[in-house]
Nucleic acid binder design. Structure first.
Length: 242
DNA sequence: GCGACAG
DNA sequence: ATCTTGTCGC
C-alpha cells in the first residue's frame, strides 16, 4: 500500500527490496535503538485482545533464554495444558546481537526464540513469554511482538514490575489487582501461591486479560512461576551448562 | 535535569 | 540475565 513511505537512498538498478524493519527479525541487520522504538510504535496497533477458550487449550509453550559470557541458549518447551507434562521441546545456542535495553527486550530475545520455536515438532495453542506484553512503555513488549509476528495467542508473565503500579493482591492464591500505567489497565498482579509475592500478567496478542489470568493460574498449580516458563528456564540453563 | 528501568 | 550461603518456614 504505502510503497513510497520508506525513505531510502536512491538505488539505481536494485530490485525494490522489501521494507527491512517491518520484516524484522528476519532482516539481516539488527535495528538501531531509534528504529527499534519506531518499529514498536508502528506494530503496537496490530495487537488484538480477544477471549480465548481456556478449556479448549491443548498445548502451551513456555519460552526463556539463559546467558553466560557472550553466549545464550533459547528454549521452547511445549506442555499439555491438561496434565502439564512436557510433550515437546527445542533449544538453540547463539550469541546476543542486541544489548539489553529496557523496553527493547524483544530485539534481544526474539531472534533466538523464533529459531527455537521453528525447531518444534508441534504447534502450540498459546505461547507464554518470560516478560511483558501490553505492560510496556509503548504497549508492545516481547509477548506482543511475538504474537503479532506469529499471529498466534501469546501472553507475558513478569517477575518484577516494569511499568505501572498495582495494589498488593489479597494473600490467597488466585487473588489479583489491576496493573495500571498512565491511567490504563495494562495487566494484573496475580497471586499464584498463597502468601507469596505475585507475578505480573499482561496480554501479548489474541487473548484477553481474563483468559490470560485463568491460563496462568492453571499453569501454576504448585509454584509461583507458571510451569511452561519454569521448564523453559531449566532447559535453557541446563543446555548452557550453568 | 535526575532517577527508574522486563531479562 | 548473572554473581552467591545460609536460613526461615510449610
Amino acid at each position: 500500500m504505502n510503497a513510497s513511505a520508506t525513505n531510502s537512498e536512491p538505488s539505481p538498478s536494485t530490485p525494490a527490496p522489501s521494507p527491512p524493519s517491518t520484516l524484522w527479525p528476519r532482516a539481516a541487520e539488527p535495528p538501531s535503538v531509534e528504529e527499534a522504538r519506531a518499529l514498536q510504535d508502528r506494530l503496537a496497533p496490530e495487537v488484538r485482545a480477544e477471549p480465548l477458550d481456556v478449556e479448549r487449550v491443548g498445548l502451551v509453550a513456555g519460552l526463556d533464554v539463559s546467558y553466560t559470557e557472550g553466549r545464550l541458549v533459547a528454549a521452547a518447551v511445549v506442555l499439555s495444558a491438561r496434565t502439564l507434562e512436557v510433550v515437546d521441546s527445542a533449544t538453540v545456542a547463539s550469541e546476543p546481537r542486541f544489548p539489553y535495553v529496557p523496553g527493547l527486550f524483544a530485539f534481544r530475545e526474539l531472534p533466538p526464540l523464533i529459531d527455537a520455536i521453528d525447531r518444534l515438532g508441534t504447534a502450540p495453542d498459546v505461547f507464554v513469554c518470560d516478560g511483558f506484553g501490553l505492560a510496556h512503555p509503548r504497549r508492545f513488549g516481547l509477548a506482543c511482538h511475538l504474537g503479532v509476528l506469529l499471529d498466534r495467542p501469546t501472553l507475558g508473565v513478569g517477575k518484577t514490575p516494569f511499568v505501572g503500579r498495582a495494589e498488593p493482591p489479597a494473600p490467597e492464591r488466585g487473588a489479583w489487582s489491576p496493573l495500571v500505567d498512565d491511567g490504563e489497565v495494562v495487566g494484573r498482579a496475580l497471586r499464584t501461591r498463597t502468601g507469596v509475592k505475585p507475578v505480573y500478567v499482561s496480554i501479548g496478542h489474541r487473548v484477553d486479560l481474563d483468559s490470560a489470568t485463568e491460563l496462568v493460574l492453571r499453569m501454576a498449580p504448585n509454584y509461583r512461576i507458571p510451569e511452561p516458563i519454569r521448564r523453559a528456564d531449566r532447559l535453557s540453563r541446563d543446555h548452557l551448562g550453568v
